[in-house]
Amino acid sequence: MLLEVEELTAGYGDIRVIEDVSFSLGSGELLAVLGPNGSGKSTLVKAVMGLATVHSGRILFRGEDVTRLKPHEKARRGMVYVPQMNNVFERLTVRENLIMAGYTIGDELQDRIEEVLELLPPLRRLMGRKAWTLSGGERQMLALAMALVRSPELLILDEPTASLAPPVAEKIIGLIAQIRESEDVGIILVEQNAKLALSISDEALLMVSGKQVYMGDANKLLSRSDLSSLYLGVRS
């Protein structure tokens, strides 16, 4: 198993936001994390990454207990996380951002950046720009590129399509599907747009008010009319 999360309870300081969340993810799989705003999706993935306080539970990465590791130690083991907000360094140029993303990579960094630019050609002409001058779609592309530079084994994406125009969002989702094809990687995709996310995912985890109300096959979730109409905005 690539990632196993066991009865995770987490929050911020003394505050508990999510309770008893369990799931596992294998290499090559894509897990969609769905749920209404404020249901704790971001908190869940932050806790997995070590950026939120874990109160109880365990996180295993490739069988190793990483629950108490610091974020940068997890990052160095191949766990890659793209936050929902502030996911690029605004004061650095696009090139500096990509170099930073490959902070832990040695000599192959240049080659990796080249490979990633093959996948995301529009970034090529933006290399010298400061990141704060990018448009929303360009930013998400850069954030994605920064994740890919690091050849992730586990890729966690927190709402990569939030506040993007629908065609741009579809393009990003398409890219994510492409990544799953071409790389040996497990992906956790946090999404508001359930339909879009479920169209490319194997499994789905539905969060409501900090609790896990569904974990299992993505297609079956859509057929659960009680959940899908209430929380996913999907009419069956």
Binding site: L51, P83, L92, E96, M100, Y103, R150
Partner: peptide, 24 residues
């Protein structure tokens, strides 16, 4: 220098920096 850029990155956005492996 890579280390210097990392330092700027770490002070600008600590959580993102740590998520990409920088010891903030």
């Amino acid at each position: 220098t890579k280390y210097g850029v990392a330092l700027r990155a770490a002070v600008e956005n600590p959580s993102l920096a740590s998520a990409i492996g920088i010891d903030v």
